[in-house]
Design a binder for these strands. Structure first.
Lengths: 246, 246
DNA sequence: CCTTCCGTTAGGCTC
DNA sequence: GAGCCTAGCGGAAGG
């Protein structure tokens, strides 16, 4: 395709705020928080209606270069090719795509207002534990979620056990790491300072990394196997029940 | 476009291992480590030669759903639409895209062997410090990079100052956080245990978060302002010099 | 395979 | 805007 024709198509599509796909032979330059260069090759450039822009190579999940939404897009026909620039003010970054050849330009006005729903997240795990505290242990009573501990951060679930001991619960949707255990321990220290009494520490996760297992024993942290999937099922069941009762 | 025609085009492109773009009205379902649903909407589906697959909405940098390279892709024409499934064995995950309408199917055999070069990374910062230790301070002498500290991880740069004190340097390409300082301090403890002598601790980064500043004073950690960009320039200058001397 | 750590992480939330 | 944290994080390097 003539580069001049491609320029015209892209400019028109930009004005109309359409999703644009450009396939061609291009070089890519990026400078901002970091910097990168990518020599000539055949790739796909995607420009979205909100100013996000992505360069995709023929392989790999990730774009090789990109600019997030809000970038300002400019198109320039030059001697050496068709240049597309995406500027971002803060942080100051620029992405330059220089097309030596354009194979095709497509553009679309897409309508998509559907809601995206994600399940089996850490958030759902927390909700399930608050709703069904026996997931942690019989007699466990949550008192607070997201309790702030000075200097450390936020406790996922804070409560008491059947004997009245304070309990700090840290939730992870993936296997717990040493870092996770250390974080939990810093909450324990904070609570101990605040209440003058050392709380029990429980990590609720689908599993635990081997290196973290040692820390468990050393510091008396307890592990409860809780999976995102099971928590999701519990919430679904409860919801179904509520509907039935309503 | 007829869904049967689309099915044919996609299957042929899959056999030929081409990059495939499908634009149309689709629903998306994902289940694996988590789960998600996305109702009908007009989107772009990208299938790459290596089995990666991406669903892009008209806005936003990130794909709303995806599957990484190596997924097995199947195409099925059903009563309710054209179904494209991408399965991944480990972790066991499935992505289902059900097209109610297909506007266009494009496919390309793309040639792209160019090398991608990234600059101003943490790796470059380390190289620059090893090459030009005065970036840390006059008289600093690096001894080792990536020195293993038992139980903690790896020290970015380990060395001695002009008075013979041990020095532990932690490098960050972005502003240093409290976590970064804690990590550095765990290296310090490890080195103290190993050498029976407490080393100096230096964090080399473009800046430091306010909450981390307090930790500096409390634990005697020193801060050196070192930016990725400046390190990159130093390496470039050195390279130019080498070329000139060669 | 598992673990560790970086990333132009992005994105969402709070302050 | 800065700070804090999660993510289906992905990806690479090392054991």
């Amino acid at each position: 395709m003539e580069l001049a024709k491609a320029e015209e198509l892209v400019k028109e599509a930009l004005r109309a705020r359409r999703l644009i796909l450009i396939v061609g032979l291009m070089e890519v330059f990026y400078e901002g928080r970091a910097a990168s260069t990518l020599g000539p090759g055949e790739r796909l450039l995607i420009i979205k209606q909100d100013g996000s822009i992505l360069v995709h190579r023929p392989s790999g999940y990730e774009p090789v270069n990109w600019q997030p939404p809000g970038s300002k897009i400019e198109v320039l026909l030059r001697e050496d090719g068709l240049l597309i620039e995406a500027r971002r003010p803060s942080p100051q970054e620029i992405l330059k795509v220089l097309f030596h050849e354009v194979f095709d330009v497509y553009s679309f006005k897409l309508n998509d207002s559907a809601e995206f729903a994600m399940y089996a997240t850490e958030e759902e795990m927390k909700k399930a534990i608050l709703l069904e505290p026996s997931l942690i242990e019989d007699g466990f009573k949550p008192i607070e979620d997201e309790r702030r501990v000075s200097e450390s951060g936020f406790i996922d679930v804070f409560g008491v056990d059947s004997s009245g001991n304070l309990v700090v619960v840290e939730i992870k949707r993936r296997n717990a790491t040493t870092e996770d255990i250390k974080q939990l321990l810093s909450y324990v220290d904070g609570i101990e300072k605040e209440f003058g009494k050392r709380p029990r520490a429980i990590i609720a996760a689908p599993g635990i990394q081997k290196s973290a297992t040692r820390l468990l024993k050393t510091y008396g942290v307890e592990f409860r196997c809780v999976t995102p999937k099971r928590c999701h099922e519990i919430l679904q069941r409860k919801k179904g029940l509520d509907k039935f009762l309503a």
